[in-house]
Design a protein around this nucleic acid. Structure first.
Lengths: 333, 333
DNA sequence: AGATTATGTGTAAACGTTTACATTTCTAAC
DNA sequence: GTTAGAAATGTAAACGTTTACACATAATCT
């Protein structure tokens, strides 16, 4: 179908080796020959076949990105940051989503095998064992937001704990004693860490640790709404609510509004993630900011580093700092 | 580094052909041999190399997605829709962004050559000629939001014209005579179409066509802000503003607020795209809705169709319908 | 001039699969 | 006990590159 190096070689009356040398500037070639080859290639509209090349050189200049799914701001920002950094370093991105069960991970991994020089895996759902036994040892891997004790991989995590801790401490410092939390999915690593931060801040800040103020949630807007509805039907009412992500905070805001409760006057509210919408809400939402695209970029950076150094590269864990962004919803703007 | 089919063959004491047959269920194999091979593969943790396979079968089960950049809601939704449909059909996605100039397009195309069975190209910036001469004829291509007269490609466009037309007509029908428009980038195809819809609606609805109410913009929030600031300094003030996208509408809303103008009471406002934020603004933003993920999905659908039928596939152009979503900002909620 | 080195080019193997074809072995019908 | 056919397996070429090696030829140094 499309032109091969052989056809170019024939037309230029040289060997394929010479054509390759001309096109890659590898090895010496006579100026006349060079011109001849260039012309032949142009005339035939020759474009080297990346696959043939890959097979031969055993590298692909591509990086695989395995994500749990592609919903929402978070993932698009990861992709953007990753792609930007990758592109600067002449790498391309092979994106694969929704590997939430064992089979799909294996599928995705199989598809990647040979096609990429390294892998970035994001898998916040706790399934460390499966992950560990499926990940290829033959190529560099960087783990993002994964819960894995194993020290045999590079890993990159958001500092969820400290973000949540600081946020809740901020509320405590402004006099809140009864601070509710709307938690994320139980088996989600990020969610757990945020919960841990909340707990420690409550204790260390000498606020009240009231179990009935810890609501279940699943990161969805609806679950935030429901949590607040339940919360308001209880005897012990909070003076502040900390949602484990912004989507749930948005749901919470709707529920509070529907119940005629003023935010922040009657109940203060804070979220996590600082998605763009946070800024546009009324009241604007206090949240924990994460530089998500940076997360993606750093993952690529680490991976490329590890690809280049291959063996003598030391695995490490990195925590990406978070920062509290104070807006109207917490009452201390 | 990683196990090859040959090593599996050796261990199972059969030929590579047999291993291949077992693993792909192609051709007859004795049950005992089959078991032997399976076991050897498992023990060696063998995973077929996708590249070797591709080279041999001349297909990759991958689709290339060329995007102008990866900013904002729009692209992430396209990717999501595309990935979802692709995954259902056992295809994977190779994403490449920011090919805004000729060289980058060529680069991206070169990277894709051989790696993908088909290509989806999105390039709203008007550069039809470059595109046309760089696109490979050897594989199926679907164009998204591209301005190209050429009938030799499948193409998929948002019905920008009709969306804008209906939106503006809605405003006209509710009594607005002086309707301003904040336009998008001049050389952007989508932006042009939206402008065309605005114009026709103004004329056919017998509203006033006032050149000074047509403001320049570049799809950014800041440009929306600036446009309104300029608009308010003019003699002829509009009773309604139609922004060519939601980002500019958001900027416009800020500017109106900063100028102490109530929306929609004094000036009505409408946007285009219906990004998620639109719903959360105060007042919530009337906008033209596009099912972006569907756009991505449909592109993949068309492409896969065209890959399967290859030659006897008839090229066609499809327009994705848009719909007006009435919210508070236009005053007719 | 002869020895050495540099330059230019070709040959062929290698990368990891699949698969057309060839070969062997088995099954069953006569 | 042939023989025809099917079933099981192996052989080797093909896919499109790159590159180690070999081999000329030309340039440079004693």
């Amino acid at each position: 179908m499309s032109t091969t190096i052989k056809e170019v070689a024939n037309r230029a009356r040289v060997s394929t080796a010479t054509v390759s040398r001309v096109l890659n500037n590898s090895g010496p070639v006579d100026d006349d020959t060079r011109r001849l080859v260039r012309e032949a290639a142009r005339e035939l509209r020759y474009v080297p076949n990346a696959i043939g090349r890959s097979l031969s050189t055993r590298k692909s200049d591509a990086i695989g990105l395995l994500l749990p799914d592609l919903y929402g701001e978070f993932f698009s920002e990861v992709i953007r940051g990753a792609d930007q950094y990758a592109q600067q370093n002449k790498y391309h991105l092979l994106v694969s989503s929704s590997h939430n069960n064992r089979n799909e991970i294996e599928d995705a991994l199989q598809m990647m095998r040979g096609r990429v020089d390294g892998l970035i895996v994001m898998s916040p759902h706790i399934e460390a064992d499966t992950l560990d036994e499926n990940l290829p040892r033959s190529m560099p891997v960087v783990l993002m937001n994964c819960f894995i004790e194993n020290d045999s991989f590079d890993s990159l995590n958001i500092d969820n704990y400290s973000g949540a801790y600081q946020m809740v401490m901020h509320l405590v410092e402004h006099g809140h004693k009864r601070i509710a939390m709307i938690k994320g999915p139980e088996r989600n690593y990020d969610a757990r860490e945020r919960w841990r931060g909340y707990n420690d801040a409550i204790r260390e800040g000498h606020a009240l640790a009231i179990p009935s103020l810890e609501m279940k949630g699943n990161f969805s807007e609806a679950s935030g709404y429901d949590a607040v509805r339940t919360l308001l039907n209880q005897n012990t009412k909070p003076t502040a609510i900390f949602a484990a992500n912004d989507s749930m905070a948005i749901g919470a805001l709707s529920a509070l509004r529907d119940s005629g409760i003023r935010v922040p006057e009657e109940i203060a509210l804070a979220g996590f993630d600082d998605i763009p919408i946070a800024h546009y809400l009324t009241p604007s939402l206090t949240s924990v900011h994460i530089d998500i695209s940076k997360l993606g970029g750093m993952a690529i950076e680490k991976l490329i580093h590890s690809i280049r150094l291959k063996n003598e590269h030391k695995k490490e864990r990195v925590l990406l700092p978070t920062s509290v962004v104070i807006r109207e919803s917490c009452g201390n703007h």
